[in-house]
């Protein structure tokens, strides 16, 4: 999907030990595989984001295994304890084998 665009809202800086909130959103239809094409009557094949992972300096902080009941344009809000400066990496895996990712730096003082 060429129009799949990940968006992230994460702080760029934090105090040590602070619990920070991260919000992520990706534009995606999340086709359930249960709907029928109105013209042909055939089932539209499932195409969803099936896995979301948030890493910090390579270590997994938070991840989600998604099913078709997650709404279109999947949104997630979660937290992380800021302990050191580093870089976030967010990865979305599509049913069609594609992955989308985005990075964001964090400075801890």
């Amino acid at each position: 999907m060429a129009n799949t665009k990940p968006r992230i809202k994460a702080p760029k800086s934090a105090k040590q030990g602070e619990i920070i909130t991260i919000k992520t959103l990706i534009s995606h239809v999340m086709e359930t595989g249960l709907r029928k094409d109105k013209k042909t009557g055939e089932l539209i094949p499932r195409q969803i984001i099936n896995k979301f992972t948030a890493k910090f300096d390579g270590a997994e902080v938070f991840s989600v295994n998604l099913d078709a009941a997650i709404s279109a344009n999947p949104y997630f809000q979660f937290t992380m304890k800021a302990e050191k400066s580093g870089e976030f990496e967010f990865i979305w895996q599509d049913d069609n084998g594609e992955t989308y990712s985005k990075k964001s730096p964090l400075t801890v003082s």
């Binding site: 619990i19 997994e60 078709a68 997650i70 997630f76 979660f78 937290t79 304890k81």
Partner: peptide, 12 residues
Amino acid sequence: LSGEAAASSRMR
């Protein structure tokens, strides 16, 4: 590393 076991999302 999560700090808190809390999350939000949207579902069908």
